[in-house]
Nucleic acid binder design. Structure first.
Lengths: 209, 209
DNA sequence: CTATTTATGGACAGAATGTCTATAAACGAT
DNA sequence: ATCGTTTATAGACATTCTGTCCATAAATAG
């Protein structure tokens, strides 16, 4: 897995370029940042940039990969039994780190998810969330016989999308809720859905199949 | 609301440019489409383009506005009582038109939501879905006293995000489900959440507040 | 028919891209 | 400490797209 990287120069310029991009993203929109800008900020020749990346997107992509590798390591799965007994308190601690991470980098995510963000980045985040949800949440929580009422992939896509939607809304409202509150609301909503949130007296069994 | 548009030339070139863009989007990625391309395809001078729009994005934006105005008109609200009695069959017919619309324009949405799509467009769709959900679904279904367990805006953001997530997943899997099936799955998942879908024997009342 | 609005084609400067050089510097390893 | 290799540099270059401008021609509403 871990390839040899026996040249510090490569790693150094990677850090410089990556840092420069994240810095610039706090100042202006992603499309308005030119490769020259990044190189200048990083005190690196533009030619050097092309030695490492073919694109602005590729730089962004590889920059974020590191962060998410680290993040997903902090997200250990829960077992179904644990979950039922502890009423998912454990899981809440896990997912909360995501929201504190977002809060800590709010300007950055605001820029990337906003009107002038990078679709490639959004897709990357979505893919990450889908994976984490499927592997660390859904699979452990699914019934032993594997018979769920909806395909796991569907639920993963649903949940990942919902998370992005909520994060967007959260950022747009300038983080008026704490990461703990957001996490609490997300968990409840994910688990029990609209019928619960709106106090709707409807029975799942009444679903027309 | 309806402004005077007493010159058919304007409307005609709008149609041409709009059509050209949608056509080109089925052939290549959004960023790889140049304004010259659009003008050529539309049989219109490039100078004319700038007479109407300042951007590619502005053209896209205004092109889609029309479609969504039309779509949201097909989405009448349901009352809470109606809903409880009919077990939301009515609502399902409404939201289904969204999915048939997506299915009918699959290549287009694949392009716009994909890695090389337009973030501006995605935000627009998200805003549209949030509005429709809040106004046509949540407000009618909320308890009369207005006391919901979560803020309506939160639920709207959650649901809109989930819809986009599911649509993405649906498109990535080349529409392996029918619009009816997707709509069915969405409605159930939205209403009853993960606990239901995974047959988790947990009680909403056990939530740690 | 006429005044007004819109479309045209071409020209223009400016910005950013991506590629290619030849040179210099930093590196790991022995 | 040195040597062969890798990486960084500065600058040049053609190319592409952008956005703005103009003078002219055509279409339109009234």
């Amino acid at each position: 897995m871990t390839e040899k990287k026996p040249d510090r120069r490569k790693e150094r310029t990677f850090q410089m370029l990556s840092g420069a991009l994240l810095e610039l993203l706090k100042e202006r929109d992603y499309p308005n940042i030119t490769i020259q800008d990044i190189a200048d900020r990083a005190n690196v020749s533009r030619a050097t940039f092309y030695l490492h990346f073919k694109d602005k997107d590729e730089l962004l992509f590889k920059s974020m990969e590191r962060i998410y590798d680290q993040l997903s390591a902090e997200y250990p799965p829960v077992t179904r039994d644990e979950f039922i007994n502890k009423t998912y308190t454990h899981n809440m601690d896990n997912s909360q780190s995501e929201y504190t991470h977002v809060a800590a980098n709010a300007e950055f995510y605001k820029a990337m998810f906003g009107t002038h963000g990078s679709p490639q980045f959004m897709q990357m985040v979505r893919a990450y969330l889908e994976n984490v949800t499927r592997e660390h949440v859904l699979k452990p929580l699914a019934p032993q016989d594997g018979k769920t009422l909806l395909p796991l992939d569907f639920i993963a896509a649903f949940t990942a999308g919902a998370e992005i939607g909520v994060i967007n809304w959260w950022l747009d409202n300038d983080l008026q809720y704490s990461p703990e509150q957001i996490n609490q609301m997300m968990t409840s909503m994910c688990m029990f859905g609209m019928a619960w949130a709106l106090k709707l007296p409807v029975d799942p069994n009444d679903i027309p199949t």
